[in-house]
Nucleic acid binder design. Structure first.
Lengths: 335, 335
DNA sequence: GTGAAAGCGCTAACAC
DNA sequence: GTGTTAGCGCTTTCAC
């Protein structure tokens, strides 16, 4: 039959050919009310013959549910995020949700645009990892009926999943102080990012009031990229005596810092210890292998998915929750 | 106003409050026909006040366009694919397409399920990288009005983007033969995958009829993973004399092979040369740095996006095309 | 330059 | 156990 190919077969076509009403066809597939076995048989056979495929768009318009979730991330190309996304997706798959993946490149305008998009498309859920958008806006999205999970320390306005960055950053800093001396430096990523803020705060907690050598710099903000790491490390080294240890806000930064240390003939960790954050695959492969914080991206994703699902299915509808998936320090060679 | 939050503001609400018809409101936003400037002003103001956001689902039902593309991949966690996906997304973004990302984990059932899903959701486009689904099925999807691009050597049924794997694999094999001797082995990924097939074919082209030492194995199929590489290399080495060079179907496999070589005290490339495929970030970071084939995932993605776009916009509607984004050999230390 | 009205394909009361 | 019918919110003829 031609119809199989052109695929404009509607529920009415099936109903007509099967000699039943559209309602019955609908219920055969939804199972929302009992249908006589023989009738079911006929309907399914006819639907098959005609190549009927329920129009999900029409269904969404009617039911007001899209079975779609948006994941907003800085950049899927940063190895941390694919793992996170997989975590979300894997958790949502059994419930037949599809996920739209969006890259903001850490730009405010993109973040806002995607929020609009989520609203316009009437998505069921949103997992958001943003740098610029303030929590109120996220809360407004949630208000409109979309389940929202914020990746990072939530401001208590929407459900949040985090790995307790601040506490962890403090712990790592103290570890460095204890092992290499009090003069520890920090290379931050985009400094206004929530993540960056917490890690920087933790760094300060841990470093306490240790003195900074004259004319030296011990805190510097760059991008969350390898190049950012290079620039940050260069700034640190050019400003005076090298610190005893450098704590980087993520692994890409640490990789860049490692590059610069190598180029300048500094031995790691002997002359300067380096710690990253994320434990991307490359961290274990560089030499010296990178000591880093493993934040379990996939588990974070699954936790986000779980929160989302509980709201989307209506299982939970109370006040905002905050889940913590603790990070761990993976000590390798660089510190 | 309350409505701003609850967000069930429809075009009719705006029309009523602005004292115009829904038609006019629609045209103010679509620009599909001229509207008096003052009227526009009023409509926009009211829409803003009410927090109106056009319902994309309703629009899709009416226009039969979803502005959504599905990208079906084996696994977003394999570093090659995020880059590819970014390529597609970046190219599609200016035209306001959103992309749904799906992981098949190389399972036939998932591949089929996503095709169904794409059909049901009436998506505008599909970029497909599959192992099992045969080209006819893809052609059927295309028939139904969805723009389809196949990543890999297309069977001429739908638009295809590839990097000429077979030719490249032959070239690399000949390079290895020329440099390390005729006894070259190949560790394949999932052997039924189109990619795997082409690379294996190229390997055979390049190896020609070079003799295989007694009792040895020179072709082995595993997964496209590091573990697969470990297993493959182990098989190779356990079966007899080590080959002079090992060509791996991707970098993860090569990394695994490298692990095993290291563990067995084989010097790379002196005792056995190793080549990978993909040039993932880790390839440059391991030691010895991996010689590998760089297949420009992002460019492949962009090429796919371009083909897709030309069909979705109706700019092109002729017979299926095939685009080649040539790969290049990146020679580092391992071969 | 503007409006009325007919659907897009489905679901879910509300009948029977 | 099954059918009738009224929309979901938008776009788009067709009319003025």
């Amino acid at each position: 039959v031609k119809d199989v190919c052109v695929d404009r077969v509607t529920i009415e076509d099936v109903a007509a050919r099967a000699g039943v009403s559209p309602t019955t066809v609908s219920h055969v597939f939804s199972g929302h009310r009992p249908v006589r076995a023989e009738t079911q048989e006929v309907v399914r056979r006819v639907a098959n013959e005609l190549g009927y495929r329920a129009n999900a768009v029409a269904k969404s318009l009617r039911t007001n549910r899209t079975s779609t979730v948006m994941i907003v991330l800085p950049d899927i190309t940063n190895p941390f995020y694919p793992l996170f996304a997989r975590g979300v997706q894997d958790l949502l798959r059994p419930s037949d949700y599809q996920t739209i993946l969006c890259n903001t490149d850490s730009r405010e305008q993109e973040e806002l645009a995607f929020l609009e998009e989520a609203l316009a498309r009437r998505l069921d859920g949103l997992v958001f990892m943003g740098y610029w958008v303030d929590p109120e806006r996220l809360a407004a999205v949630a208000e409109s009926g979309i389940a929202v999970v914020n990746l990072g320390e939530g401001a208590g306005q929407v459900d949040a999943v985090s790995s307790g960055d601040r506490e962890m950053a403090a712990r790592v800093t103290r570890y460095l102080v204890g092992r290499y001396g009090p003069d520890v430096a920090f290379i931050d990523g985009t400094s206004d990012a929530p993540v960056a803020r917490s890690r920087m705060a933790g760094f300060r907690d841990g470093r306490a009031r240790a003195p900074v050598p004259d004319g030296s710099v011990r805190e510097v903000s760059e991008d969350f990229t390898r190049l950012g790491g290079r620039r940050g490390m260069t700034t640190l080294l050019d400003a005076g005596a090298p610190p005893q240890a450098v704590f980087c806000a993520n692994d890409l930064i640490a990789l860049g810092a490692l590059d610069v240390a190598r180029e300048r003939g500094l031995r790691v960790p002997h002359d300067v210890a380096i710690v990253g954050w994320d434990d991307i695959e490359a961290a274990a492969l560089v030499s010296p292998a990178l000591t880093t914080v493993r934040s379990h991206p996939q588990l974070l994703g699954e936790a986000s998915g779980k929160l989302l699902l509980s709201r989307m299915t209506g299982v939970y509808s109370g006040p905002s929750r905050s889940v913590r998936v603790p990070a761990e320090l993976v000590t390798r060679e660089s510190a």
